[in-house]
Design a protein around this nucleic acid. Structure first.
Lengths: 148, 148
DNA sequence: TATAATTAAATTGTATACAATTTAATTTGA
DNA sequence: TCAAATTAAATTGTATACAATTTAATTATA
């Protein structure tokens, strides 16, 4: 035990979080390659499949991403034909994102992905639920903070 | 409950992991700006402070990063004067990384960072320990898998 | 021992991330 | 009402990440 103990990698909570997130998303790659999606594109499509229609700001709030990340990514999804991007007539500052038919078809090809991935993270049901709750607890606290 | 329930964002374990890691590291920025370090540079320095001397491969194994990420990052840390990069005489394929005096001085300026950050993630001691253990359980499983 | 196989870093190319700024559109309030 | 403030996306610039390939050095083996 020395004065620098706090600075040891093994004493950080941030590092396993960082590494784990990175390794988990990396393991999605082979599954998502079949859908021609990256991980970030996949979570964008997940939100779009559920909401069908939303603007960039709403999408960003759900995913904790800003327009700097989303704008180029959405252009790629549009190019692939999975979403459409059109200006809102009532307020031209808003960009309306909608899933296309091709985007909806993709959903059927993606149904196996979550199960395949859950095989990869070998936790008990209880452990997974506790992890899930703890992570959302942190995220919700951050969200409150950001509102202030 | 429909056939697409598995594909809902809220039913994924990967997403809170991804978002949480991202938000936590983002919150390091103001603290690390004072040290002229990015988050990844910070965890590299943490490992270097502890080990004083190692090569790129060893560093990459500890941090789950490859040379494609580390090579340019280490060049920046060298440019800032925090580490030195020299070829190993016995095996010129290895690059020996060493903390410099300036790099060691930086350690003293960094001692507050972990405590400041832990204030940011408001979990009970028990919750934090459980989270830590679960994340390392996943990581260790991945490591085993990669060895095969 | 000369070539093949292996290994460690570096390089290349693509895709995020995000802070900070800019642009364009809308809303506010003096 | 009209300039100021605000808002939503887009843009700019910097820094990761990582797969795939290349380069250079070392080791293994026929």
């Amino acid at each position: 035990m020395d004065n620098y103990d706090n600075l040891k990698l093994e004493n950080q909570i941030c590092f396993p979080l960082y590494a784990c997130a990175k390794e988990v998303t990396r393991r999605y790659k082979p599954l998502l390659d079949k859908l021609d999606l990256t991980y970030t594109q996949y979570i964008v499509m997940m939100v779009m499949w559920e909401n069908k229609k939303m603007n960039v700001k709403e999408l960003g709030e759900v995913l904790y991403l800003d327009s700097g990340t989303l704008t180029p990514l959405l252009l790629k999804l549009e190019k692939k034909g999975y979403i459409s991007r059109t200006k809102n007539k009532d307020d031209a500052r808003n960009l309306v994102l909608e899933v296309t038919k091709k985007g909806l078809n993709l959903r059927d090809k993606a149904t196996d992905v979550p199960q395949e991935m859950s095989k990869c993270v070998k936790l008990s049901k209880d452990e997974a639920i506790t992890l899930y709750n703890t992570l959302y607890k942190i995220l919700e606290y951050f969200k409150e903070e950001d509102d202030n």
